[in-house]
Design a protein around this nucleic acid. Structure first.
Lengths: 196, 196
DNA sequence: GTCTATACTGGGATAGAC
DNA sequence: GTCTATCCCAGTATAGAC
């Protein structure tokens, strides 16, 4: 049946989020106006406020949705036995997950400072949970004698930064597939913690 | 002798740059207004335009000055013999240089997209020169058999990201000195390329 | 749910007096 | 070199008709 003319909440809603994500990633939250989002969605500015109370809530919703997905996807991953295989699983998961959603990753790193303090606290706590998973793997491996890491905290920071950096240069259709990239990074990570 | 009242170009000029650097790093280029800069400098808005033709030129000037300093300081560093020692020198230089000027480093990574295209091209070219220095070291070490790196290009990206990541967590007065941090990172870097 | 119209605030930049 | 005043445009957000 035909809908009431002008009623498109199931189309416009996602479109607002997709457009905002794309524009925030491209130009930055502060540089993107609600007018611009509306224009690219194909509605008038006022209509946006049916989908978000304000611009800040839109940013927070995008980041929160992304972090929720990151944590739940990671927790649903198979959990191999032993720190060595778990580290490899983390490396491959992180690269794959990040390269699959470059825009969300980008704003998750770039737009943290544009979150209101209470929103920032929520995202920051989720980030710590995720990074804590890596540090736990390193700690286990260290105490089991499978890894040799001078400082597990620093090592987790170093490895996260290294892995996340893939997004700054990787372009789909380049000379390497995601799997090949993951192989190369895993080789460096493995050696850096003296595994195997 | 007393200067003409209200004439402070030698004080105000640097103050404008310092203030802009600090505010851009803290809130982001797009989120900072010329009015805000003027307020914190202690002048009226109109006075700012004695020191920069516009806001964009102010950002570019900060980034350009930073990149110039990076390249000239690196080129003035002692250049040890052999890829292994040159890599160590690069690692320690990068960490020290970056931790010494966190704000400039921060905007150099975050505000690239807010540069006008012609300005972006200039900064990007300088960045490639710097990163090329690391890749050259890796290539030399690989061909001399001192390193084992599956892909020197990727390895240079990976290492740069890892080293630059120090700035996201390091705080002066924390439990580790800059030298201790550099020791730990050098240990991981060295192992990741199978040196020694 | 979307539109048009508008309130209100703040943006970058300039002119001209001192 | 700085100030005051101002131009012009854009921002977020809301009200009320359809």
């Amino acid at each position: 049946m035909a809908r009431t003319q002008g009623s498109h909440s199931d189309i416009t809603g996602p479109k607002v989020r997709d457009t905002a994500l794309r524009l925030f990633a491209q130009h930055g939250y502060a540089a993107v106006s609600m007018r611009q989002i509306a224009r690219e969605v194909g509605v008038q500015v006022g209509a946006l406020y049916n989908y978000t109370p304000d611009k800040q809530a839109l940013l927070f919703s995008l980041l929160k949705g992304h972090m929720d997905e990151l944590l739940s996807t990671w927790e649903a991953e198979p959990r191999p036995d032993g720190p060595r295989d778990r580290l490899e699983a983390f490396v491959r998961f992180h690269i794959r997950f990040n390269l699959d959603r470059p825009q969300a990753i980008f704003i998750s790193y770039m737009e943290l400072r544009n979150l209101a303090p209470e929103n920032f606290a929520v995202i920051e706590a989720q980030r710590k949970v995720y990074e804590g998973a890596l540090e736990a793997i390193l700690r286990d491996g260290q105490s089991e004698g499978v890894f040799s890491v001078p400082d597990t905290r620093l090592a987790s920071y170093a490895l996260i930064a290294m892995l996340t950096g893939v997004n700054t240069w990787y372009r789909a259709g380049g000379r390497l597939s995601i799997e090949e990239v993951a192989d190369i990074y895993w080789d460096m990570v493995r050696k850096s913690v003296s595994a195997d």
